[in-house]
Design a protein around this nucleic acid. Sequence first.
DNA 1: TTTTTTTACTTGCTTTTCGCAAGTAACACT
DNA 2: AGTGTTACTTGCGAAAAGCAAGTAAAAAAA
Lengths: 180, 180
Amino acid sequence: MAGRQKKPRSGCPVSVSLEIFGDRWSLLIIRDVMVRAYRTFKEFQTSGEGIASNILAARLRNLQAHGIITAESTNADARSIHYRLTEKGIDLAPLLLELLIWGTKHEDTGAPCAIIGRMEQNRASVLAEVRRRWRDRDPEPFLPPFSNEGAKPTRNPFPPPSPNGGRKPTRAKRKSGGEK
Amino acid sequence: MAGRQKKPRSGCPVSVSLEIFGDRWSLLIIRDVMVRAYRTFKEFQTSGEGIASNILAARLRNLQAHGIITAESTNADARSIHYRLTEKGIDLAPLLLELLIWGTKHEDTGAPCAIIGRMEQNRASVLAEVRRRWRDRDPEPFLPPFSNEGAKPTRNPFPPPSPNGGRKPTRAKRKSGGEK
DNA sequence: TTTTTTTACTTGCTTTTCGCAAGTAACACT
DNA sequence: AGTGTTACTTGCGAAAAGCAAGTAAAAAAA
């Protein structure tokens, strides 16, 4: 998120979307509120991803500003704020489902492939159920948190790339440069 | 991407996926190579989003390392490297399509809503065509770049959130804190 | 009623990444 | 040989991320 909101880039919907939630935390928050029925700051904070509280606050503010979530104070506890998805927010369900499917298929995660595979075969009904729970404010989680305890580490069949694209000579002495 | 690759977070597929391409550039590169048939460093660089060359190089390296793209040297020009999607990479097509649909629906972009709306009604055939072009190495772009010249600025119906969630008193003197 | 705990944050500080400008090695073209 | 092109790298300042600690208000406990 460095340099965020600075210069407007292209008008491509993909680009515009990524400027809103194209970071490593926003979609995790949306996942939590969408399928785990998390509502409070505390729940997000202890969701297992280890987000820092200042970052969480910033992301919640950003998602609010873009109309993806709302913040409601409950009458039960005056301190407590309940975050929930707007219609715009629940419309991210298909995206999140694809993210879930892709990750399960291609990375070694803690998710049971069988279940996700079945979700892949029934996208429409999964999405209908997620939306139904949202509409009814169903406090029941749709999916549990997945932990990859005991998951074998992925040995990826793609070796870390030789710095150049596989050509013969090295072009410049590469030492650092960015990733990794 | 600050602090990237540092501590492994949860085993949730969503989290794992976002650790790979959860930034503002990776999916744009994938979009370019997937639907615009871009192949070279130069094309990505001048794609209209304004990515810096060092960031682009870092992202290409990362996507390669995760087996999402490959780099092939062409026999035509020894300098030129052609990037293309792997099977794992083309499997991101559904995700990208949802990103496109969501952005078009909820943000004011340069994309013609009518066309995207039709794509929404025919997800399967759109994806089949994208995949066909990938398999056949079709050099023809599937979609043109969208520019939002002349697009009316979005006035979003969600006001910038009052710093607290809409409760009565302010809890602490907030001055900055993060977003915006 | 006073003390302790909980909730939802903010503040300060260090580390990491971003983004820009400039440079460079290998190759191609003229 | 000289110029241009491609695919990068390097250096640097400015943001943003991440960590630890602090704080206001409300609730629960003593």
